[in-house]
């Protein structure tokens, strides 16, 4: 009898599930989210996926991501799904998408950009999806996700 591999991860009582994250993006997403240090987090990396060949998965117990945090994850892994769990039930499921433009979230990579001197959040236009890349609307510098410094 052949045995199918299974991945045993406890179901959440309440919290957030990030599924269909791009393979090997979960640890970067967690670094960016800077969750409270005592948060229970389960992470799956390089799991088999029907949608893509491989995917990552994050389950966060007892913590619901804010819109801003979800927007940051979208910049690392667009197309991921975000589910909010309450009493074991999925009460909200969202497919993350890249915005056309967005304010804040990251710093402009150009040290000469005016936003580093003024008290205004950066303004960015998304240019690419894979890898994610943006263009600063002020200094027009383009840069890819590997150079994103999240706020």
């Amino acid at each position: 009898m052949s045995r199918q591999p299974t991945y045993k991860v406890s179901a959440l009582t309440q919290g957030t599930v990030l599924d269909h994250l791009r393979a090997r993006s979960a640890l970067r997403a967690l670094r960016v989210l800077r969750l409270p240090p005592d948060t229970t987090i389960m992470v799956g990396v390089n799991l088999p996926s029907k949608r893509h060949e491989r995917k990552d998965l994050i389950k966060i117990e007892g913590y619901e991501l804010t819109q801003e945090e979800a927007a940051k994850v979208a910049l690392i892994s667009p197309d991921a799904t975000l589910s909010i769990i309450r009493e074991y039930d999925v009460v909200q499921k969202t497919e993350l998408t890249l915005p056309v433009t967005f304010r804040g979230l990251i710093r402009c990579v150009n040290p000469s950009c005016i936003v580093h001197e003024e008290r205004v959040p950066g303004l960015f236009r998304v240019e690419g999806n894979d890898p994610v890349s943006v263009r600063c609307e002020y200094c027009e510098t383009s840069f890819a996700e590997e150079f994103f410094e999240f706020l």
Partner: peptide, 27 residues
């Protein structure tokens, strides 16, 4: 202005037209 993107930022706050006469190494 020496900072890149300064003219765009100025235009965002100004109610009159802004002309960029050089913003750092940008434009």
């Amino acid at each position: 202005h020496p900072r890149e993107g300064s003219a765009r930022l100025a235009a965002e706050f100004a109610g009159v037209p802004v002309v960029n006469c050089g913003d750092g190494a940008h434009q």
